[in-house]
Amino acid sequence: MVTSALVEGVAEYLADAGVAEWNPTGGYPPDAAGIFIAAVPASPDRAVTITPYPVSIGYGTTDVTVGLQVRTRGTRDPRTLMSLRDAVFTALDGLSHRVLSGIHVAQIYWQSGAVLGLDANERGEHTDNYYVQTAWPSPHRPE
């Protein structure tokens, strides 16, 4: 539950920051920039896809670091990709002490990125990895 709530919270936060639209069902008009979880759809052209992955667990504590791969895609105009990436970075890097969908986020920071090149429709793609420091209590690792 922590992972899905965290990803949805980040999607909501990006939408509230004006980066792109968030619709949990994934339906967007063709001219919108849409936010997706784990899947990279064929449309709309401008897309932000958030995929979580494990990074580290603080043994003996509830501290965890969750990676978020944020894959961005623009139109055939490379500036749309640059603008979308910049907006994601501005919204997420350095974000701290926020509650997103009930998950307390101690900090989010940019870790790495890579150019993915052009997709089959000649739209630019890039991926950035953000690390999220949070807590993940469990019966064996109580708060």
Score class of each variant (00 low, 15 high):
R46S: 08
A106P: 01
E12Y: 04
E143M: 13
F89S: 07
N121R: 11
D45W: 08
E21T: 00
V10P: 13
D93Q: 08
S101T: 03
G34P: 06
G18T: 08
P29V: 04
T65F: 01
A87I: 02
V99D: 15
L95K: 05
S4M: 09
G9A: 06
Y59M: 06
G113S: 04
Y13L: 15
G26S: 06
A135T: 12
A17E: 12
L6E: 15
A47M: 04
M82G: 03
R79C: 00
T49G: 03
V115K: 09
I57E: 13
G117L: 07
P29N: 15
R141Q: 12
H140G: 05
L68A: 15
L68N: 12
G113H: 09
S43W: 00
T65H: 14
E12L: 06
T25K: 01
V10Q: 07
G34H: 03
Y28H: 09
H97Y: 04
R71K: 13
R123Q: 09
V105F: 09
A91G: 05
P142I: 03
T80C: 10
D128R: 14
A20F: 01
L14S: 11
I37R: 15
T62C: 06
L68D: 05
S138D: 11
A11L: 05
T72F: 05
G27A: 07
A20T: 08
D93Y: 08
V40A: 13
D63F: 03
D86L: 11
V10E: 11
V7E: 12
E125H: 05
F36C: 05
Q69F: 12
T61K: 06
A106L: 10
I35R: 04
Y59R: 12
S96R: 15
L84S: 02
T72V: 04
